[in-house]
């Protein structure tokens, strides 16, 4: 039966991929804690990922807050509960929608660029050239990128959340008569540490996943220009999937911790 054969083959290649990815992650941690640390390249990557994604994240966040508020408003108005708007929007953005949407955007922006960059470096033997020049390419390329993504994502998400709330406040300010001060007062009235902290911890994992999968796909891409495109594409697809898995686990765990 060719059908069952292909399913078995798919499953086996999937598990092989997961195994290779875990191995890759293990190598990352091993090399992260051994000297030397490529600090300048790390800063350069922080700049590339953080600052260069900022405009994208800010626009996405702003529209997210705007649209989310506009869409929820009529329903809440029906219940006469428009005054609940700030607390509802802020909790859902800070807890869930902000981190997930911004991480997905970053998976597209950062994950694909890492995948394509490392993929093309692999294909054009730049990675070999580094090794020959006495530089550990894994340290120089992979460790710095994964670490930078892990640290930059929480900051991007925090900024994105903030901009989204500003967008939401703008709608409330124009459509309702809620001042920015009142809006943010109610936002902080509604938010708990149990909203902010799990979301922040979660966003570190999001960043790690984006960096890890991007580097993994790029570093192990096949020869040829087709391999580069495939690396970039599968980095985004696999990262997006992984983000939702991480999100599920994070929600599950924080639900257990915070009851």
């Amino acid at each position: 039966m060719p059908g069952s054969f292909s399913i078995a083959a798919n499953a086996s290649s999937f598990f092989t991929e997961i195994g290779a990815l875990s191995h890759f992650a293990g190598r990352f941690f091993k090399e992260l804690f051994s000297r030397p640390f490529e600090f300048r390249e790390f800063l350069r990557q922080c700049y590339q990922m953080g600052n260069k994604s900022l405009v994208l994240v800010a626009i996405t966040g702003f529209i997210l807050g705007l649209v989310f508020t506009l869409q929820s408003r009529p329903t809440l108005m029906e219940f006469g509960a428009v005054s609940w708007m700030p607390s509802m929007i802020s909790i859902s953005i800070v807890r869930e929608i902000g981190p997930v949407i911004i991480a997905l955007i970053c998976a597209g922006r950062i994950g694909s660029s890492i995948g394509a960059e490392l993929g093309s470096m692999k294909v054009t033997e730049q990675i070999d050239a580094m090794e020959v020049s006495g530089t550990n390419p894994f340290k120089f390329l992979v460790v710095t990128r994964i670490f930078a993504a892990t640290l930059m994502l929480p900051i991007l998400i925090l900024i994105g959340d903030f901009v989204a709330l500003v967008g939401s406040a703008l709608v409330e300010n124009v459509k309702g008569d809620v001042s920015f001060l009142l809006y943010f007062n109610q936002v902080f009235e509604a938010l708990e540490f149990s909203d902010l902290l799990p979301a922040t911890v979660k966003s570190f994992f999001f960043g790690f996943a984006i960096g890890l999968v991007g580097c993994f796909k790029g570093y192990n891409s096949n020869k040829g220009t087709a391999g580069v495109g495939k690396a970039a594409n599968s980095a985004v697809v696999f990262t997006s999937l992984l983000l939702f898995v991480i999100d599920f686990i994070a929600v599950f765990v924080s639900d257990v911790i915070y009851g």
Binding site: M121, T124, E125, Q126
Partner: peptide, 15 residues
């Protein structure tokens, strides 16, 4: 390796 120079096929300059 410091004693060896290597000119790669496609130049392999860091983009």
């Amino acid at each position: 390796r410091a004693e060896i120079g290597f000119l790669f096929q496609g130049s392999a300059l860091y983009d």
